[in-house]
């Protein structure tokens, strides 16, 4: 089995939002919506400040509440890599998943179904990186398989301090941020 995920180096990220636009263009995301976004957190008092700039998206959680709460089974784990996907045809737009997601990663597409990051599974299955990863001018994002002990993503987690977002929600997110 594979468990796909991302490791993102916040030291390299400059918050340029290229990942946001690449995703919108690649996936034809409707105007005014996005599947990924940038968060900037600052700590301290001027001039002794620390900034963490993060590119964020669906965490493709291993224990995803959006999957367990979906009444129709539209939200599901994909056979490959455990990627969390929404089957648009089965989605009734009830928004239960939107309420359950601790990361606010989902939105209602103007056509009525719920939409979100797919890890660009259509690219991944062809051996390419997700659009956001392959566009990044700072090379701050790494996509890979956490079940493969030799994968670059696992090596990065072994060698650098990192954190995930809202781990206390207990959803087992699959995106880690190097600090």
């Amino acid at each position: 089995m594979a468990r796909y995920g991302m490791v993102i180096d916040t030291r390299k990220c400059v918050g340029c939002q290229d990942c946001v636009i690449a995703c919108q263009a690649e996936n034809n995301v409707p105007e005014g919506f996005c599947r990924d976004w940038i968060t900037t957190e600052s700590q301290g008092k001027f001039p002794t400040l620390q900034l963490e700039i993060r590119t964020e998206r669906c965490n493709h959680c291993t224990d995803a509440p959006c999957v367990s709460c979906c009444p129709t089974g539209a939200s599901h784990y994909h056979d490959v890599g455990g990627v969390v996907l929404v089957n648009h045809n089965e989605c009734i737009g009830c928004k239960a998943c939107i309420s359950s997601c601790p990361y606010d990663a989902r939105y209602i597409h103007p056509e009525g179904y719920v939409d979100k990051c797919t890890f660009c599974i259509h690219r991944v299955e062809k051996g390419q990186d997700p659009a956001c990863v392959s566009v990044c001018p700072t090379h701050c994002m790494y996509f890979g398989d956490f079940d493969d002990p030799n994968s670059k993503v696992n090596k990065l987690l072994e060698s650098r301090k990192h954190h995930s977002l809202i781990p206390e929600a207990g959803t087992k997110p699959n995106i880690y941020y190097l600090i």
């Binding site: 030291r11 400059v14 900034l51 701050c140």
Partner: peptide
Amino acid sequence: VQEFAEAVENGATIITVDPRFSVAASK
């Protein structure tokens, strides 16, 4: 910017002079 990120990754010392705490200042 690509090269800047590479320099940051390689551990180059960055010295940023700016009245504003820019993104580059945060690196």
